[in-house]
């Protein structure tokens, strides 16, 4: 056998080994994720999931997407403020923040940190949702009698959406240690801990020259693959969602998805069915 042939055979063997090993490791990891007791199981509705009305003909894969909310501070003018993500919390996550007094320094009007890998705690229909709803109701009831009809209507619409339409899945905590987070949020039917990214930036603020910390949180896996066995129920879900008029009440029909999160915190669809009243 020539040296060239020998070399090609060696390279072939190494490449074959690499392909087999890579697939084996990936499949083994997925099997380990789904074996044993799940880390969390959430029963989500169409409010917490985005189900496309139709799919691209060129892509036969079926996905659903998580819809979750980030709490914002009362009176805040940005969607990305998390009041529980204060200076102490940021330092515990490893951020090297400027000194307290330097927040108002002339030289630093904007400071941004690269995204950090964190574990995110999602809470389903818990305290964060109830507080957001209570806050919206309080705002509506606190409107002055002299407030215009448009203002009143907007406040009522906000309450209605929160009560009937918006996702009840809220981000309530982040951390570097998933087990530590699970100790603080122990209910597996209410809290899911998932990998994600935290981005933090500091801005002087364009209103009243008030500097603030802003944050945004995104999940590593927001799109969840739906296996072939659930393709039929998913299509029925999509049809029923399409029947609900824009702004209408979603309680007449919907989807129920039992989403399990395994030992590696990777999700999979355990159950999926459409329902009607």
């Amino acid at each position: 056998m020539s040296s060239r042939m020998r070399r090609i055979l060696q390279l072939t063997a190494m490449a074959l080994l690499l392909i087999v090993a890579a697939n084996a490791i990936l499949l083994l990891g997925s099997w380990r994720n789904r074996s044993g007791e799940p880390d969390a199981e959430l029963l989500l509705s169409e409010r917490e999931l985005y189900v496309p009305y139709s799919w691209d003909d060129e892509n036969s894969g079926r996905f659903i997407q998580l819809r979750y909310q980030l709490a914002s501070e009362m009176g805040g003018d940005t969607l990305f403020t998390n009041p529980w993500l204060d200076r102490k919390k940021l330092k515990s996550l490893g951020y090297r923040l400027p000194q307290e007094g330097a927040d108002t320094a002339e030289s630093a009007s904007y400071l941004s940190f690269p995204a950090k890998k964190v574990f995110v705690v999602l809470e389903l229909q818990g305290l964060a949702y109830e507080q957001a709803l209570a806050q919206a109701v309080a705002e509506m009831e606190g409107l002055q009698p002299t407030a215009g009809p448009e203002t009143i209507q907007a406040a009522e619409e906000k309450v209605r959406q929160l009560r009937d339409q918006d996702s009840r899945l809220y981000v309530v905590d982040v951390g570097l240690d998933a087990q530590e987070l699970r100790q603080h949020h122990s209910s597996k039917e209410r809290y899911a801990i998932v990998p994600g990214q935290l981005r933090v930036w500091w801005d002087r603020g364009h209103k009243q020259n008030k500097p603030q910390w802003f944050s945004s949180i995104t999940l590593d896996r927001e799109r969840i693959f739906v296996p072939l066995e659930f393709a039929g129920p998913l299509a029925r879900c999509a049809q029923q969602m399409q029947k609900v008029p824009s702004g209408g009440k979603t309680g007449a029909s919907g989807c129920r998805v039992r989403l399990a999160f395994g030992t590696r915190l990777e999700p999979w669809v355990k159950e999926l069915h459409a329902w009607t009243n």
Binding site: L26, S30, D220, E266, W268
Partner: peptide
């Protein structure tokens, strides 16, 4: 094919990127 292999399997099992 190999890139697709691992990418689609990762999507199939919702593996963390």
């Amino acid at each position: 094919c190999f890139i697709l292999n691992l990418t689609l399997l990762g999507q199939l099992f919702n593996a963390t990127p």
